[in-house]
């Protein structure tokens, strides 16, 4: 089997197997790959292309919690967006971990502040957000860069768990326009904790692209343009995916149960059946 065949088979498997066990399943698939020939590149590529629920680590410098994914990881340590340092602290003899250039780091600080406001407004004051940026060009300017916006929120009773992962790339199109490519994934787990075992878990992914104009007559204006464009794009994408989650988790799955698996009414009279079920559901919704 070629590298591509194994990579595709691994992704296909992760799309089939239970999303709640995605972290353990990814780990197990990596173990299988390493057992046969140990293809490290394949393992690294899988780890960077599969979204798993976000981990929370505490920044030792500021005391604030921050979110972790493959994009702020170096070995077993993660870079804090608050202090720009890696935690847990790495041994001195290690190779220097990756840091964003100064220009990109300045934008990263502002992006963290802006998305913290966004999180506060949309997530009712709770949850955690972290933004990480990195250079895609060698010249350390704002001409081309990439990043990820992460948001995590659990309800107090543990019945709802939300993880947003927005990965984007900014590619200069002309002197005053840039292409923004965004991939949004939301990992959403819902579980009834009271009198039933109903659990809805998983993730949906969507992509968006847009070309936007930039203010180019000064450094701070350019920064502001990027923040406006990225903020607007992430807000739009998250709005869309929230509607989609609502549709899939509540309408689609319920329809599959009632129309494909087990119907309450007698199938012998399909029309009567449809009427009964829509009345039944209407009645229940009115409760």
């Amino acid at each position: 089997m070629s590298y591509e065949d194994k990579f595709d088979a691994s992704l296909s498997l992760l799309r089939r197997l239970h999303p709640k066990q995605i972290t353990a399943n990814l780990d197990n698939i990596c173990t299988l790959i390493q057992q046969n020939n140990g293809e490290d590149e394949l393992v690294q590529d899988l780890l960077s292309s599969v979204d798993t629920p976000l981990k929370v680590v505490k920044c030792q410098d500021t005391g604030k919690p921050f979110l972790c994914c493959d994009y702020n990881r170096d070995g077993d340590s993660y870079r804090s967006p608050c202090s720009n340092k890696y935690f847990p602290v790495q041994a001195d003899d290690d190779e220097l971990p990756p840091f964003p250039s100064n220009t990109i780091r300045q934008l990263e600080i502002k992006a963290n502040d802006a998305f913290d406001v966004y999180r506060d407004l949309y997530y009712e004051g709770s949850g955690i957000s972290s933004v990480y940026l990195w250079d895609t060009e060698d010249d350390e300017t704002l001409d081309g860069f990439a990043g990820v916006v992460l948001i995590k929120k659990d309800t107090e009773d543990g019945s709802g768990k939300w993880n947003s992962i927005h990965v984007f790339e900014v590619i200069p199109e002309s002197a005053s326009t840039a292409l923004y490519k965004l991939t949004t994934s939301v990992i959403l787990d819902l579980k009834n904790n009271d009198d039933s075992s109903l659990s809805l878990a998983g993730s949906l992914t969507r992509q968006l692209e847009t070309i936007q104009t930039l203010e180019v007559d000064g450094g701070s204006n350019l920064e502001t343009s990027h923040l406006i464009n990225l903020g607007t794009l992430v807000e739009k994408s998250e709005y869309n995916i929230r509607n989609l989650l609502q549709e899939v988790y509540f309408d689609k799955l319920k329809d599959i149960m009632l129309k494909d698996l087990r119907s309450v009414g007698d199938l012998g009279d399909q029309k009567l059946e449809n009427l009964k079920q829509s009345e039944l559901i209407k009645g229940l919704q009115g409760l």
Partner: peptide, 15 residues
């Protein structure tokens, strides 16, 4: 139930 268009969503119920 498993739904997997551009994602991977699973419903489980056991009683």
């Amino acid at each position: 139930i498993h739904y997997y268009e551009d994602g991977n969503v699973r419903l489980n119920f056991d009683e």
